[in-house]
Design a protein around this nucleic acid. Structure first.
Lengths: 229, 229
DNA sequence: ATTATCTATAGATCTATAGATAATGC
DNA sequence: ATTATCTATAGATCTATAGATAATGC
């Protein structure tokens, strides 16, 4: 199963970068973008450093100039945007709690947690879409586990805290299970795998994040209410 | 990131198989089991034919005797159990519809669809658990899409049909979106990634399919009810 | 003077095939 | 006589490094 190689993405007539620092930053970003795209399609082991270099339009050995090895590149792809989304969500949850004066609802907290990220993936450009697919693959992977923990657990625990406040009668483990369902659906949505398109004969498009955002938080909030026995 | 090689799994003192057909079947099964395990950990590209051969305890070239190439082996791992689960679920849904005399409920249909499979993964032994992790990785992958479609769409459309009956007022696309959420959570559960264990400080175990089965169908059924506007 | 990029290449896999050997089957 | 398994090996990558060249920086 030979994969079709993608065309180099580097601009033919690149405006000469002024300083070395700028050039470094530019090349780094191009490498990370190319790697992100390729990893999102084929995973860590399905991409070679040569693939990445070719897509950027530079020599393979440059990969080792900027990154220790392939796994270091992979981790950097993960970390680069993980910091952005975590911070955004954390701030949004802080603000939400302030707005509701410490009395959150399940639907409210879920809307903030999910919609904030959906907005980012919807309007952040190709890079963020690729990152979503990249992360969704990783999330169902043993290798991915540890990376998610380190970078996302703080925000997730922030959300869990709000859900506990909103659901005082519910056993803690039920809230974790509820979150487990939420994150599975959310990650699957970011994969935009195209399965739903074929399953529904085109009625729904799996890359229609707007449609998903419009439904997901309320769907899940209702689910939480079913945990009350 | 060198992975630790797993020990060969072949019995030291294997009871000599009687016929060639039996021997063939036995070896095939060992190869598929080993491949299933390894693919579930590292994905298609993260496993070499040599890895599989070593785990079985035979020579690499035997892989090519039994399978055209690596992808053929991968597909066979997928197909082997896909047929089993699809048929089981299909029968269970048929029986359910008969029992309720053509008047299904959302919760009822989801319980049959999900619990039937959870039972299989819970009591089917190591092989089925590995297959669950294998499939969950695949489900968020572009490569996986097409394979799922072919083998699972019929049962899924059977479920969708029941949900439509149970929710006559709801637009068809909402039902597909609801299913999208269900399958994301379900597949994530089969990954048993261990993330939830760490997130919840051990309160929940991601391989506790019994706990998931006890909550998921009702959680999702409540979610569907939120789609009514 | 320092840093970004490329050339050349070693060493380690990996896939796949041809052909030999060992075990079952009439 | 046929089929299961192994030996040996070709050819194609892949990662990683050493050292050269080209571009910026004082």
């Amino acid at each position: 199963m030979k994969r079709t190689k993608s065309k180099p993405v580097k601009k033919a007539a690149k405006a000469a970068p002024r300083t070395k620092a700028e050039q470094r930053a530019e090349t780094l970003e191009q490498i990370l973008d190319a790697a992100e795209y390729l990893f999102s399609k084929h995973g860590l082991y399905g991409v070679t450093l040569r693939d990445v270099a070719q897509k950027v339009g530079v020599h393979t050995s440059l990969m080792h100039y900027y990154f220790e090895d392939k796994f270091a590149l992979f981790k950097e792809v993960f970390v680069r945007r993980a910091a952005v989304t975590s911070e955004r969500r954390m701030k949004a949850l802080d603000q939400y709690e302030k707005e509701v004066k410490g009395k959150p609802t399940v639907a409210g907290a879920l809307h903030v947690f999910l919609d904030t990220d959906f907005d980012l993936y919807m309007s952040g450009g190709e890079g963020w879409k690729n990152y979503g697919a990249f992360g969704s693959q990783l999330s169902n992977t043993p290798e991915g586990g540890a990376m998610f923990d380190e970078h996302f657990d703080p925000v997730v625990l922030r959300l869990i805290g709000l859900l506990k406040k909103a659901l005082p009668g519910i056993p803690e483990e039920d809230i974790f299970w509820g979150y487990h369902f939420v994150t599975g659906s959310f990650m699957h949505s970011l994969s935009r795998s195209g399965r739903l398109d074929r399953l529904s004969s085109g009625l729904c498009k799996s890359d229609d994040l707007k449609a998903i955002k419009a439904r997901m938080a309320d769907f899940m909030a209702a689910g939480f209410s079913a945990l009350k026995k």
